[in-house]
Amino acid sequence: MNLDIRTPIGLLFLSLGGLLVIYGFFSDPGIYFRSLNININLWWGLALLVFGGIMTYFGRRKTKLRPSSTP
């Protein structure tokens, strides 16, 4: 297969993480009474961004090095 699954997974998590981080910055702090007053959108969004970045990096690196082979 020519599509490395890590790339779409990485892109999905980058977009979801980015969205949550931005929302976490601008949202009303009052909504975080549910999550024990932790800004879970911001922190978990950051975690998703890191994971998405790692997946995208490995997905793209492999595509560049060996266009159509499998490990």
Binding site: L20, G24, S27, I31, R34, S35, L36, I40, N41
Partner: peptide, 8 residues
């Protein structure tokens, strides 16, 4: 519903 705010 108990733990997650809008967004999460």
């Amino acid at each position: 519903l108990h733990y997650f705010p809008t967004g999460m």
